[in-house]
Design a protein around this nucleic acid. Sequence first.
DNA 1: TCGGCGATGACAGTTACTGACATCAGTCGC
DNA 2: GCGACTGATGTCAGTAACTGTCATCGCCGA
Lengths: 201, 201
Amino acid sequence: MGRWEPNARDRLALAALELFGERGYEQTTVAEIAGRAGLTERTFFRHFADKREVLFSGGVDLRGLLERGVAEAPDTAGPIDAVAAALTAISAVFAERPDFVRQRHAVVEATPELRERELIKLASFASALTDALRQRGVPALAASLAAETGMAVFRIAFQRWAQQTDQKTDLARLIHDSLDELRAMTAGAATEDRVGHRPGR
Amino acid sequence: MGRWEPNARDRLALAALELFGERGYEQTTVAEIAGRAGLTERTFFRHFADKREVLFSGGVDLRGLLERGVAEAPDTAGPIDAVAAALTAISAVFAERPDFVRQRHAVVEATPELRERELIKLASFASALTDALRQRGVPALAASLAAETGMAVFRIAFQRWAQQTDQKTDLARLIHDSLDELRAMTAGAATEDRVGHRPGR
DNA sequence: TCGGCGATGACAGTTACTGACATCAGTCGC
DNA sequence: GCGACTGATGTCAGTAACTGTCATCGCCGA
């Protein structure tokens, strides 16, 4: 047996999720998290850059999964389709541990500080998608738009999925339904008059 | 003359922007900001909830502007058009003080902590747009999608606008061009095969 | 067996942020 | 015109997030 209990990092992450759920994020000190994990505050900060990050360093590399999802999409797929494929890929990860994901999401939703961190993570996902699309030869503007709207669709679908009490509909389905709705909306919206702006280029 | 110099809040915001530009956000303490404004640290925190907020409490109520922009869009306008009108409305605010906006943006871009705060502000804008659309009778899903994709378009257009060294193209134009590109992309993307997912309901 | 490595502990220090109380120019009621 | 009241500020003490530095000590390879 080693000098220390193994999996210090996982123990810290688990203790943090428990305590945040019990007393809330702000009412929990880092020292308390470390204590429950049988470690000290200093060691906590050796594993996580800050108090928030303990909820955002899960085992799975979602960024990589997104990049691969785009890269492996068929050549015939347009930017939006490639992004949709990537989103479908990561939705499988969430589907594996729905209870854990929902518990974590409840804590994040309840705490503005954690929502900020979540948003910047999602923004970095969008950035990864953009890069992956550009590698497929997609022009910069189209790549950014597909990536950002893709993540917007994901956020909305995930929100709906997490709110479900009955877990009736799976995440991939919600993503594709939302994407279809978006297609219908953008198609349906005629090129109306634009206030004070003349078209052309 | 009053007991204190007037506009304490504005002095603090100005001092902060200057110092963040000179030494960077992390290398600047709140005490230094307050000192340059002729005040104390405690007074800083009476005006701003935290150190970041000093860059995000500008005079203009962008949220309200967005809500009104949607509310005042013609009845014939679809959700996307209403959002486009609202975005056009706030782009005018940025166009009024381009130098200030760009300086502020440079500081925000350089600091992850500030980027987080920026993202949550934009998310709250999306939320405001969603509510305003729902008040027009737009169904929940369509409202969320129009609002979130609208803000995605805004982020991309703003990024491009801020990067321009020559200020050649105005923000409203970039927003509408991006929106047109998005329309073209979603329309062009055929309903491809969806991996492991059967359509229907 | 010895010496370096790596994860941890111990401890002091900085800074963001908060609560409680004091100060004092203007202002309002009388 | 005087006293109570208000509102913006200062002062001070305290908490907690985070960092730098050095010590500790099983393990592992030479």
